[in-house]
Computed example of a mutant assay.
Amino acid sequence: MRINNSKNIIIIGCGRLGSELAIRLSKTHNVVVIDKEESSFERLARRNFIGFTKVIDTNDMEALKNVNVEKADMIYIVTPDDNLNFMLAYGIKKMKENINLAARVNDPIKKAIFIKAGLNLFCPIEDSVIELVEELEKAVGTNE
């Protein structure tokens, strides 16, 4: 059952991260998952995904226009390719400047490129390291 304030969300990339995000968000929002490989959607088919899938060449910005990315409330770009994620985020931002999007950056060294372009990003590797170090510091701090 959808609630009245559900959002239209597009997830580009249906690997482990994209599929988990899609499954979780599809419980309360309208979700469309885009990937260039049909087989990527098998993760969704085995779980309780309530949404739509679309096979699109993610290198083709014109094809992305056809799925109305400019009308999405939020776009998550979560492919494993930092260069592709940058290109997609930058291209979508050019289509609609005030669109809400978050792009995955796997290599912490590449974050500066995304930041310089004014793109909203998240870095799972860096975020995990920060969280693990904080947990260690809390654990060590409690033993003193």
Rank of each mutant, 00 (worst) to 15 (best):
M1L: 12
M1Y: 08
R2K: 12
R2T: 05
I3Q: 14
N5I: 08
S6F: 14
S6T: 11
I9N: 00
I10P: 03
G13P: 10
G13S: 06
G13F: 05
G13R: 04
C14M: 10
C14F: 10
R16F: 10
R16W: 06
G18M: 05
S19V: 11
S19D: 06
E20T: 14
E20C: 15
L21M: 13
L21I: 06
R24C: 08
L25H: 01
L25G: 00
K27P: 06
K27C: 08
K27S: 14
H29R: 01
V31F: 00
I34S: 00
D35A: 02
E37L: 04
S40I: 05
E42K: 14
E42V: 15
A45M: 15
A45E: 15
R46M: 13
R47T: 10
I50Q: 00
T53R: 02
T53N: 03
V55Y: 00
I56G: 01
T58P: 00
N59Y: 10
A63L: 02
L64V: 02
K65L: 09
V67C: 00
N68M: 10
N68K: 05
A72Y: 02
D73Y: 11
I75N: 00
Y76E: 10
Y76Q: 07
I77Y: 12
P80D: 14
D81P: 09
D81M: 12
D82Y: 09
N83R: 06
L84S: 03
F86Y: 10
L88D: 02
A89C: 11
A89F: 03
Y90L: 12
Y90H: 12
I92E: 03
K93H: 12
K93E: 05
K94H: 08
M95Q: 05
K96G: 09
N98G: 09
I99P: 08
I99S: 04
N100R: 02
A102S: 14
R104I: 04
N106Y: 12
D107T: 09
P108A: 08
P108G: 10
I109L: 13
A112C: 12
F114R: 04
F114Q: 12
I115R: 11
A117E: 03
G118A: 11
F122M: 06
C123I: 09
C123R: 07
P124F: 12
E126G: 07
D127C: 06
V129R: 07
V129E: 03
V129A: 05
E131H: 15
E137S: 11
K138C: 03
K138D: 06
K138V: 04
A139P: 04
G141M: 07
N143M: 11
E144N: 09
